[in-house]
């Protein structure tokens, strides 16, 4: 069913669900909260420094979409391999809270995750399961499918993950990759973060339907639409499905509906290449994935306001200290320009 006529009315989104923390351990819940706040604050730091001109490379921020990366990150195990796209700070930090490494990278410093050679759009951390992000739309989808082929050929009990957005579903390579993963039985999890926007165009200006998971159906891949701002739902589904795909070696397609708070690129909030979104945005802010979890934890007496404040302060301190350290870090050696072209 297409809901296009109601895209302006957040209440008409049928996929929204209530958080349910009852079956998740306290430890995991607190970890989720910590990671989401860390990602939020790290991206706010990056946003501020894009605005004041300290960061020059293009930064695509995932503020408002943190729940998806954190749920997937917490569901991954050793040997699982995730690939991102242009908006991947959250995917990276969900697997490794190393904000220093990310800050160095966006500043083009030697201590960055890509030694300052990649910037915001080319981040990597293979040791922790993040195998690279690139800004060519859809480009990592077949690469993640190939990582699935690796796992399949080695008969390992692992998965590969391809993160992409609703815009990438308009690239032909998604369809080739879904077909390949389906006929070859590859253990690849296709995660579409449908944030309703590709650059400045809303999905109803680009596609005839809101739901991108319809493409999975054509390739006989099981799919599920989830509330992308509901971390408990995302986590429970991903955790179980990842376990099952590690055994079955059959791909699945997860569509997480969410909303991008910032513009396509950079620090600006409610406008994006001339498109005003302020009305939508204020409604989506009420469905802030962090706020939804905080409210639930407080309601169920799993977290006090003081504890939350303490956690936020700890995170802010870490971020400020990592940022200052990154500002003082060294730039790459000039020989890297030619030394990294070939082995």
């Amino acid at each position: 069913m297409s809901n296009f006529e109601n895209l302006n009315d957040i209440n008409s989104f049928t996929h929204f669900s209530e958080l349910d923390i009852s079956t998740i351990s306290n430890e995991t819940l607190i970890k989720m909260l910590y990671k989401m706040i860390l990602i939020r604050k790290a991206e706010e730091k990056i946003s501020d420094n894009v605005e004041n001109g300290v960061i020059k490379c293009p930064c695509h921020l995932a503020i408002g979409q943190e729940a998806i990366a954190v749920a997937a990150g917490l569901s991954m195990i050793d040997g699982d391999k995730a690939f991102g796209a242009h908006r991947s700070h959250a995917h990276f930090l969900a697997l490794n809270e190393n904000t220093y490494s990310l800050f160095c990278e966006v500043l083009g410093k030697e201590d960055g995750c890509s030694k300052g050679m990649g910037g915001s759009m080319h981040i990597i951390d293979q040791k922790n399961g993040f195998y690279g992000s690139v800004p060519i739309v859809g480009a990592t989808i077949p690469i993640a499918t190939g990582a699935g082929l690796s796992i399949s050929l080695k008969k390992e009990e692992n998965i590969s993950i391809s993160y992409f957005g609703d815009g990438a579903c308009e690239e032909g390579v998604l369809h080739e990759s879904l077909n390949l993963a389906s006929v070859m039985n590859l253990p690849t999890i296709f995660i579409c973060e449908n944030n309703l926007f590709s650059s400045h165009l809303r999905i109803d200006q680009r596609q005839p339907d809101l739901y991108t998971s319809r493409f999975a159906l054509a390739h006989k891949i099981e799919s599920k639409v989830l509330d992308g701002n509901n971390i408990t739902e995302l986590y429970k589904f991903m955790k179980n499905q990842f376990i099952s795909v590690r055994k079955s070696h059959k791909p699945i397609f997860i569509e997480a509906l969410t909303y991008r708070w910032k513009g396509h690129v950079g620090f600006r909030e409610d406008e994006d290449v001339g498109v005003k979104r302020s009305q939508d945005l204020s409604k989506w802010r009420d469905r802030d994935p962090i706020l939804l979890l905080v409210n639930e934890l407080i309601k169920e007496n799993k977290l006090s306001k003081e504890e939350l404040k303490k956690m936020e302060n700890e995170i802010l301190e870490k971020i400020d200290s990592d940022w200052d350290k990154a500002l003082n870090a060294k730039f790459p050696d000039k020989s890297n320009l030619n030394n990294f072209v070939y082995s």
């Binding site: 690279g132 077949p142 690469i143 499918t145 190939g146 990582a147 690796s150 390579v173 080739e176 390949l180």
Partner: peptide, 20 residues
């Protein structure tokens, strides 16, 4: 393979990044 030069080449690259 299926008639998918782009995805098959991408998958080959993906396999090369992950140990093959």
């Amino acid at each position: 393979t299926p008639v998918s030069e782009l995805a098959v080449t991408g998958a080959t690259i993906g396999a090369s990044i992950t140990g093959f």
